[in-house]
Amino acid sequence: MLMLLFFCYCAVVIIGTGLLAVTLRNPVHSVLMVLILFFHMAMLYLSLGAEFLAAVQVIVYAGAILVLYLFVLFLVSLKEELRMPRFVSSAWLGRLIAGGLAACLLYILPVFSTGARGNWPAERVREITPTRALATEMYSASVLPFEIAGLILLVAVIGGLLLARREKDSSNTNG
């Protein structure tokens, strides 16, 4: 019962801060909302017995990525809000579609059934500690996705360099 209450609290806060993060006008406020969101995600992980994931969530997301966001905000220092023309002219159409989608997803909630149990029942995870379980799974069965994820990071670095690097004047270098 206590766990359920705890879950509901976290879920409500996550949804609320998520909505606020995209609707607030001030980008710094948005980032702070995301910070609260990340902490509650970490709490959810903790309640599921995944201490390592919770720690990573706090260290990497709340600690590193958010600070990076803040740096970007300070460096860019936009005085004016950038306004782009909408893809779909009516905002109400978008809200209607989003509402319909939410209604569909709420409708399937009662009939949702859980699938087959995996190789890692909770007792076994607790027995060898979640960190070890995660590592074993990641570096054996899921080694291919792990390697691809590494490649994605490499592409992100190269792409970031390509887009951010200052161009030399092109008029005198006729390729």
């Binding site: 996705p145 592409v155 792409g159 887009l163």
Partner: peptide
């Protein structure tokens, strides 16, 4: 043959293409 691999492959492709689209910074 696995949704995880499928998604990561897709992201790898998409990320490269996002950068290629924005290549002409001028």
């Amino acid at each position: 043959g696995d949704l995880m691999v499928l998604y990561l492959g897709l992201e790898l492709m998409a990320l490269s293409v996002y950068c290629l689209v924005g290549m002409n910074k001028r």
